[in-house]
Amino acid sequence: MMARGELSAAREAFDDIVVRHQRRASRIALMYLRDAAEADEAVQDAFVRAFTRLETYRDEHPFEVWFTRILVNACVDRQRARQRRARRLVALEDLAFEPAAGRSASPERRAVGLAWREAVNAAVERLPARQREVFALCHLGDHTPRDVSMMTGMRESTVRVHLFRAVHKLRAALGAWRDLR
């Protein structure tokens, strides 16, 4: 057991890690779970798990990779729990989605921007689960296919195939937007 001082110091140090990784983690979790509240919970679960298992971390992999694996597991757990509850998924359109106040872009430009984002999110949402997972980790998480392979347990070649298929589908679905943006 840690002494009180050590524990407090460990928590403070861990808070810096949280600050550094929470935004990226939240993006991944949101794309994974498609629900901001669920994503929030999954991120918290992941950080708490990471803290309580810090002694199992080996620095042969970057912390990000180790942590993202925990995050993915937390998302999977949430997803399973959600499926068990058979709760209806919250569509992205239902999320709080107001553009930031004071943005300098014109109303038309903002409207196009919003529509574009909705189109992207809808297209991503239509991807099969594995493709979406790989896409989120590679693309939003900024991880290489090799890292994603370590995070998910998939073979690297499988990750590449999923990523390629996802990108191919997205390009087909969003091709019409190229000239509008």
């Binding site: 935004r23 989605f97 574009w116 992207v120 991503v124 693309h139 939003l140």
Partner: peptide, 12 residues
Amino acid sequence: HLAAAEHADEAF
């Protein structure tokens, strides 16, 4: 990436 990140950052 930008669209998804903006969306996520507005939610978070």
